[in-house]
Simulated assay, not measured.
Amino acid sequence: MIEIPSDLHPDLVPLAWLLGTWQGAGVAELDTSCNFGQEASFTHDGRDFLAYASRTWVLDAEGQRQRPLESEHGFWRLSERQVEAVMIRDDGVAEVWYGELAEGKPQIDLVTDAVARTQRSAPYSGGKRLYGYVNGDLLWVGEKATPSTPLKPYMSAHLKKTVDPREWVADLKDLPDDGIAFFR
């Protein structure tokens, strides 16, 4: 179920399906292929944008964290069905993305419009991303291009919404002090 917070800016209602913290795993095609874990969050403070944060890490064969992979932060806005996002990545890349919210379904296609890189960042000239809300989960796939490589898939993930225990506390009013009476 998609919940729409009462203080969500009206322009962002069509993006309400993104709100929350998402965790899961995916596959990355970087120098070599690897599995990665991801935690991503979309939050709001009542203004006309969603704040976005994502961090990923390499997973070993047993699914244990090995080392950090990528982190990015940004802001997403919506006007009609037009999505714009500004993102900064820890590898020294800043991007402006534009795209469109699909008609009648929770799906967003984004393409880079501008890329700025620091001198130490790896070659990168642009990308595409597809985000979708499927059976209550967030799925995404990313493509990337460099000056010497055409656009090709590089990462994809399947994320599930996580629950913050602080949200539960608000629903536990009048809980007995001993904890046992609750089960009687």
Results as ranks from 00 to 15, higher is better:
Ala157Thr: 04
Leu8Cys: 06
Ala157Val: 06
Leu175Gln: 09
Thr146Lys: 11
Val134Ser: 11
Met1Cys: 12
Gly99Pro: 06
Asn135Pro: 12
Pro147Arg: 10
Pro5Lys: 05
Asp48Trp: 02
Val169Cys: 04
Leu101Lys: 05
Ala114Tyr: 02
Trp168Gly: 03
Leu50Ile: 01
Gly104Glu: 05
Asp7Trp: 12
Leu172Tyr: 07
Lys161Pro: 02
Pro153Met: 15
Gly142Cys: 05
Phe36Ala: 00
Gly179Ser: 04
Thr56Ala: 05
Tyr52Gln: 06
Asp60Phe: 12
Glu95Thr: 00
Tyr52Glu: 08
Asp137Tyr: 04
Ala170Glu: 02
Arg65Ala: 15
Arg55Gln: 08
Gly104Ser: 08
Glu70Arg: 15
Asp113Gln: 11
Leu18Thr: 03
Leu12Glu: 01
Leu30Lys: 09
Gly136Ile: 08
Gly142Thr: 06
Val111Trp: 08
His9Glu: 00
Leu59His: 03
Ala16Glu: 01
Cys34Val: 09
Pro106Phe: 01
Pro165Gln: 01
Ile108Cys: 02
Val93Ile: 11
Arg47Ala: 10
Lys105Gly: 08
Asp45Asn: 05
Ser148Ala: 15
Trp76Asp: 01
Ala51Ile: 02
Gly63Ser: 00
Thr149Gln: 12
Ala51Leu: 03
Val115Thr: 13
Leu175Val: 05
Asp31His: 11
Arg47Thr: 10
Phe75Asn: 12
Arg47His: 11
Leu8His: 00
Tyr98Arg: 13
Leu172Met: 09
His9Tyr: 01
Asp91Glu: 08
Glu100Leu: 03
Tyr154Ser: 12
Val111Tyr: 13
Ser33Met: 14
Gly136Met: 11
Glu80Lys: 13
Trp76Gln: 03
Gly20Asn: 06
Gly26Met: 07
Lys105Gln: 15
Leu69Val: 06
Phe183Pro: 02
Glu84Ala: 08
Ala181Asp: 09
Tyr133Lys: 15
Asp164Pro: 01
Tyr154Glu: 11
Asp31Tyr: 11
Arg184Gly: 15
Asp164Arg: 01
Asp174Tyr: 03
Gly104Arg: 09
Asp137Ile: 07
Ser148Glu: 14
Gln23Cys: 08
Asp113Asn: 09
Glu167Ala: 15
Tyr124Pro: 09
Phe36Thr: 02
Ile4Ser: 04
His158Met: 15
Asp137Trp: 05
Asn135Asp: 13
Glu70Asn: 11
Ser156His: 14
Leu69Cys: 08
Gly104Ala: 10
Asp137Phe: 05
Asp178Leu: 00
Phe49Met: 07
Asp7Arg: 06
Gln119Tyr: 13
Ile2Phe: 02
Leu18Gly: 04
Thr32Gly: 12
Arg47Ser: 07
Glu29Thr: 13
Lys173Val: 10
Arg81Trp: 14
Met155Cys: 08
Glu29Pro: 10
Ala157Glu: 00
Leu15Met: 07
Ile2Lys: 07
Gly26Gln: 06
Leu18Glu: 10
Gln107Val: 09
Val13Gly: 03
Gly24Leu: 11
Ala122Ile: 03
Leu172Asn: 10
Pro123Phe: 03
Pro14Tyr: 01
Pro14Leu: 00
Asn35Phe: 14
Thr162Phe: 07
Gly37Glu: 00
Leu110Gly: 07
Ala61Gln: 00
